[in-house]
Design a protein around this nucleic acid. Sequence first.
RNA 1: GGAGAAGUAUCGAAGUGGUUAUAACGGCCCCGACUCGAAAUCGGGUUGCCCUGGAAGGGGCACGAGGGUUCGAAUCCCUCCUUCUCCGCCA
Length: 427
Amino acid sequence: MLDIARIRNNPGEVRNALKKRLIDIDFTELLDWDATRRSLITRLEEMKAKRNKGSGEIPLLKKNGVDVTSLVGEMKALGYDIQILEDELKAVEEKIQDFMGGLPNIPANDVMAGGKENNQVARVFGEKPEFSFQPKHHVDLVTSLGLIDYERGVKIGGSGFWVYTGDGALLEWALLNYFIEEHIRDGYCFMLPPHILNWQSGYTAGQFPKFEEDVFRIEGSEEGKMQFILPTAETALINYHRNEILNEEDLPKKYFAYSPCYRKEAGSYRAEERGMIRGHQFNKVEMFQYTTPEQSETALEELVGKAERLVQGLGLHHQVSKLAAQDVGAGMGKTYDIEIWIPSMNIYKEVSSCSNAYDYQARRGNIRYRRKDTKKNEYLHTLNASGLATSRVLPAIVEQFQQEDGSVTVPEVLRKWVGKDRLRSIR
RNA sequence: GGAGAAGUAUCGAAGUGGUUAUAACGGCCCCGACUCGAAAUCGGGUUGCCCUGGAAGGGGCACGAGGGUUCGAAUCCCUCCUUCUCCGCCA
């Protein structure tokens, strides 16, 4: 949610900033509603003040034996007029709410305008691995090594699902353990949230109402009580402090959560994304911070740094991209992606998205903090960063660390959990 | 799933149709007095949001949420939510 006062005071500035996302929004109608709303409120409050005064006088007059019939009649008529204006006000406020709720966040000043093609590579780690043999695709590797069972995953869940088996499950779990261990060491609080969330949670995160089609709805949930399976733990973590006022001295609050992420990904399958690059369910550890406005820029750098170190610890070649405005999610103001090299696809794929939402989500969820100096309540800033999603890390590991004999070297940091330094074919 | 009870400020809690949401009373917290200092005691302060205004100020709304009745609702009625107790079922 944007601040309507900002639009009221600088409609041109906001419109231009949103143009970086390649959308053009005319605020004329909105500002019209806004003016109507405020004049209605003023008139209503005058009438209500009158009613309050009249209602206070009635018992006094009665006590003194004065006939109040005409005054009561007057108040009754006033009450009727108030009702009419209140209905009008409600209608215009709904329109404003709908309009505002549909607006995306304003990209930060230093974010490039335009689409994906304008994403900028900020940093690169390592180099593309060179193979002295014909490298294999991760689907072939994980299948022959017995790490993933795609066929039975589809049989029991449907297209877009797979089963981690044996060493594959061990490797997957080792990644999660590795991430968790790092975050705990950095002082982040470990959270295991519910996987089913209510509509308001989706709204606060900025996913609803626009992206309701992208999540799995729970069948049978009634209108107004819609529930869905979380597409990312971010949705749970942003709502953890919904409708709360935090103390400034408690900020920044640093959380991380593990959850599977469930996404419809309707229509986004492509031949080159076979395997586990894009599924309906994948595991992810998500970092999240609630900060003061002053802290949020630093916090974003911290989160990106943490995510990068995780990938570096695995020894995987990757790059960090600063996304252009159109590629930044609707609720976010600035985003860095960490993209990992997938040799078979000859492409870098996102394993972490680190974003600053500024006060956008806080406004939607009414999350504030009390400033120590002014004692005033202000919207805080929220940030999220994957740390990390595993579904592309595992393919990168098997592809980047594959050997000529079809075996795969286990990254050093994972060995204590996997229990071996090399994964070999089961056949 | 069934029966019952309850939701008022930071917490406990009073208030069951009117001139007290300036939300009694108490706790916490903050400031001050007393004190060498502290405890105790005494005095004072302490909800949020919105509209208007340059400001000072003025006004409105909110008693779990949303409707209704009424000139007037924390108080009466309806729907929903949450919590607690008991029963049932159960990983």
